[in-house]
Amino acid sequence: MTIAVINSGGANLGSVVQALNRLGAESVLTRDVDEVRGASRVILPGVGAAAWSMNALREHGLVDVIRGLTQPVLGVCLGLQLMFESSEEGDTPCLGLIPGRVARLPAEPGLRLPHMGWNRLAWKADDPLARGLDGHEWFYFVHSYAAPAGSAVATSEHGREFAAIVRRGNFAACQFHPEKSAAAGARLLRNFLEG
């Protein structure tokens, strides 16, 4: 199996690679079009701002390549947000794989932004990513923007309900960081590799 982790230029992309290493899966951090196309699994991670990351993907000719992938793809954090049509963050069009617009989480008294820390999921539908999880696990989130909960496989809540896991065919994504979510996150990553 070849796993391509798309290098969209943000900080901390190595964490995903290291999490895969811990699972005994070798991966390559790349922005090479052929390497991404040819991989049997593709991970789209991302830390940073939506507009900036979309620019990086465009610059490397990856936007249409990602849209056209047929192998299993997993977006992580910003990678989930980029799968939607557009984002309020920098008011940018995104990959448009999933209908909806990413918006800032509400600022309310007593509600801190970023949403930073461990939170639980409410599962709305069964998914191969959920294999072996009992639904009560905690996952680590760090974000200020979030995608609409409407069609999500699982949601979480911070001021409002938002999409924590989404899926459209071979494209899946999670808003939290499985690579930083201890055993539960490792299980989810393994489900992605084996799914």
């Binding site: 072996g132 999880l133 009992d134 009560h136 696990e137 201890a182 055993a183 539960a184 490792a186 299980r187």
Partner: peptide
């Protein structure tokens, strides 16, 4: 709290 089911794989 760490649930039993999420013990290291």
């Amino acid at each position: 709290l760490q649930a039993e089911s999420t013990a290291p794989v």
